[in-house]
Computed example of a mutant assay.
Amino acid sequence: MQPFNWEERRRADEQSYTILCIDDESVNLKVLASIFKDHYNVVACKSAKQGFQHALQESPDIILLDVLMPEENGFELMEKLKKHPKLAHIPVIFITGLQDAEDEEKGLMLGACDYIQKPFNYSIVRARVNTHLEIIRQRNLLKMFALFDSLTELPNRRKWQQDSIDSWLSAKAKQSAMVYGIIDVDHFKKYNDHYGHQQGDVVLRKIANIIKRKLYDYNGAIFRCGGEEFYFYFPVKSNCTASTVLSVCLNSITELAIPHLAISTSCHVSVSIGAIQVIPNKNTSIEQIMQQADERLYKVKNDSRNAFSLLELDQNNKQIPLDIS
């Protein structure tokens, strides 16, 4: 597995940042655009109303806002932004001709992250905006670290809790079938005891990498949710059964042919899989489905291991004949 290139990600993030400039003076908008256009996406608006609509559409990373504008001033727009759940988190820098300390205090009290007086120095504006965007970048990286497992670089349990609910609600709205399940590495404790935890980490990375690639081919996703336990989901397609996808995942581990001489039943590392095929509906939840997947997993673990157990439910959550491989 190739290490994640954080510097490359940082440069890509810079190119993707969007700055929304709101000022009723065209000259000011042109100047701001000239300062930032070479490094960031710049959106210019000449009124508070137009700026609010663009903020909803563009979800900018930062907003540069004038105070003195006709119809609706910058302070009034700031209050609207902070009350909107989608926009409240966006940093706002006031760039205004108002010189009084009271106005600056008001802007900061409303939630602005900075206040720059006109006429402004280009270098100072650039430096301050870059500083706040760097804070945003670092915050985004912290969020990413919080949602990903450092060993396998897979999304973690917290990310699973977010994404599985999103996939469930989406499939429920479309009335489309999904497969949710759990993968567990067979005899992993014995592997660690025999080969050492460092080599065990290598195995987990190899398994995570190959399953991720296989599920990606079927628009699926995998998450590390425990020591040697992975959760996953994928949509059911008309041209490919759930059993086929699970077989591909199972066989991909076998094909790795990772030696496991600490057990007598097999000489290679294997996994067991428990999975549920379901059309999400109001009569059940993702938590209940995962509990059933866990039951299918332990049935495999108690039987043969190196296999999968798939339980298919109809729209009334009634069991369709069990498929075990």
Results as ranks from 00 to 15, higher is better:
residue 228 E to Q: 13
residue 230 F to N: 13
residue 231 Y to G: 05
residue 231 Y to E: 03
residue 232 F to P: 00
residue 233 Y to E: 01
residue 234 F to H: 00
residue 236 V to T: 13
residue 236 V to A: 04
residue 239 N to L: 13
residue 239 N to I: 05
residue 239 N to D: 15
residue 240 C to V: 03
residue 241 T to L: 13
residue 241 T to G: 07
residue 242 A to D: 09
residue 243 S to M: 10
residue 244 T to W: 03
residue 246 L to P: 02
residue 247 S to H: 11
residue 247 S to G: 11
residue 248 V to C: 01
residue 250 L to I: 08
residue 251 N to S: 12
residue 251 N to H: 01
residue 252 S to P: 06
residue 256 L to W: 10
residue 259 P to T: 07
residue 259 P to W: 06
residue 260 H to I: 07
residue 260 H to T: 08
residue 260 H to Y: 13
residue 261 L to Q: 14
residue 262 A to S: 15
residue 268 H to L: 11
residue 269 V to R: 09
residue 271 V to N: 10
residue 272 S to P: 12
residue 274 G to D: 01
residue 274 G to P: 00
residue 276 I to M: 08
residue 277 Q to G: 01
residue 278 V to H: 09
residue 279 I to W: 02
residue 280 P to C: 04
residue 280 P to V: 10
residue 281 N to S: 15
residue 282 K to L: 07
residue 283 N to W: 14
residue 284 T to Q: 06
residue 286 I to Q: 05
residue 286 I to R: 05
residue 289 I to A: 10
residue 289 I to P: 10
residue 290 M to C: 12
residue 290 M to H: 15
residue 291 Q to F: 14
residue 291 Q to H: 12
residue 293 A to V: 12
residue 295 E to K: 05
residue 296 R to T: 08
residue 298 Y to R: 13
residue 300 V to P: 06
residue 300 V to Q: 07
residue 300 V to W: 07
residue 300 V to H: 06
residue 302 N to S: 02
residue 303 D to G: 11
residue 304 S to A: 08
residue 305 R to N: 03
residue 307 A to F: 00
residue 308 F to N: 06
residue 309 S to D: 04
residue 310 L to R: 11
residue 310 L to S: 10
residue 311 L to C: 12
residue 312 E to C: 05
residue 312 E to D: 12
residue 313 L to V: 10
residue 313 L to P: 09
residue 314 D to R: 03
residue 314 D to P: 10
residue 315 Q to A: 03
